[in-house]
Computed example of a mutant assay.
Amino acid sequence: MNNRSQKNAKYDSVDIHKQPAFDHILLKNHKIQIGPNSLPKPKNTNLKFNNYPHLESTDEGCPKGKVPIQRLKVDNLTDVIHPLTETAPGKHFAVAKSNVFKKIYGASATIGLNTPHAKMNQISAATIWIEGKSVQLLSGLKVEKDKSTGHWWVTLENNIHLGYWPEKLFTVFGCGANSVQFDGWTYGYPDGMSPPMGTGYFPTTNNLKQSSFFLNLKYVDDLGVLQDAHRLRQVADISNCYDAIYLGHKNRVNEQILTFGGPGGQCDL
């Protein structure tokens, strides 16, 4: 979930069959999958969401049969750079990353959404990354492999399916991914200020509402079952600006917790 200045962002409603993705040579004859056929079924959970806001949109959206496509500018491209890339100065992260799992076929979490004060050309985000060799999939909330088609679906709470990455683009994931991480990350010009991460407060062990969080961290195993993403390794690249605390399975209500955030500032000076 990225938060950045979008006052001048413009979107076009494009015919679903004519979206720019199909310009890719591997997708020339791609048949669109309208909905997933075979996704993992979640385990029973005691998580309660009534005290937290849900994703909503006040926009009218696109007409049936069309999808929104943002008109990209050069500075938009920073969104797709991996936060752990050493050659990307100005990026910082606070993450919980898997150690050795069996092959991974998806991951999910409930993310506490915030509105950090990211200015123009800054990014403050909370994301889920699934990695296989040198390839990464980026998502919010949930990403899972449809075993009947091989496509990787992005899904919000209440089974709202946003779309998918076609299997042909990620053949390295044919036998599953190697690792998963849940992270907060930021971007700002290296010679300037880094934006706040999450709520802008450092994480604590006793007050989830003060800092940002991931709850109910899960991964999909080779049988297509959602399992607890336990034994995660927490990492923050610059502790005077941001931090992450992996709390594990804290109680029956809040399963597998990562809390993260920080004020940012002059992190690279």
Score class of each variant (00 low, 15 high):
67 V>N: 07
67 V>E: 03
67 V>M: 10
67 V>R: 14
70 Q>D: 01
71 R>Y: 01
71 R>V: 14
73 K>C: 06
74 V>K: 13
75 D>H: 07
76 N>L: 06
77 L>H: 06
79 D>C: 04
81 I>H: 03
81 I>W: 00
82 H>G: 13
83 P>G: 07
83 P>E: 01
84 L>Q: 12
84 L>M: 13
84 L>S: 04
85 T>C: 13
86 E>C: 06
87 T>I: 06
88 A>K: 09
89 P>M: 04
90 G>P: 12
90 G>L: 04
92 H>N: 14
92 H>L: 12
94 A>K: 10
95 V>Y: 00
95 V>R: 04
96 A>R: 02
96 A>K: 03
99 N>M: 11
101 F>V: 06
102 K>V: 08
104 I>D: 04
104 I>L: 09
107 A>F: 01
111 I>A: 03
114 N>D: 07
114 N>W: 02
114 N>M: 04
114 N>P: 03
115 T>A: 06
116 P>T: 11
116 P>G: 05
116 P>C: 07
118 A>R: 02
118 A>Q: 02
119 K>C: 05
120 M>Y: 05
120 M>I: 14
121 N>A: 13
122 Q>P: 05
122 Q>D: 10
124 S>V: 12
125 A>P: 09
126 A>Y: 02
129 W>N: 15
131 E>M: 09
132 G>Y: 00
134 S>L: 11
135 V>W: 00
136 Q>H: 10
136 Q>A: 11
137 L>Y: 01
137 L>E: 09
137 L>M: 07
138 L>R: 14
138 L>W: 00
139 S>N: 07
140 G>L: 05
140 G>F: 02
140 G>H: 05
141 L>K: 09
146 D>G: 04
146 D>T: 10
148 S>W: 00
150 G>S: 08
151 H>T: 15
152 W>I: 12
154 V>N: 11
154 V>Q: 08
155 T>C: 07
157 E>Q: 06
158 N>T: 13
160 I>N: 10
162 L>Y: 02
163 G>H: 01
166 P>R: 03
167 E>H: 14
168 K>R: 11
169 L>N: 08
170 F>L: 13
170 F>D: 08
172 V>F: 00
174 G>D: 15
176 G>N: 09
177 A>I: 09
178 N>S: 13
178 N>K: 03
178 N>W: 00
179 S>N: 11
179 S>Y: 00
180 V>G: 04
182 F>I: 12
183 D>A: 15
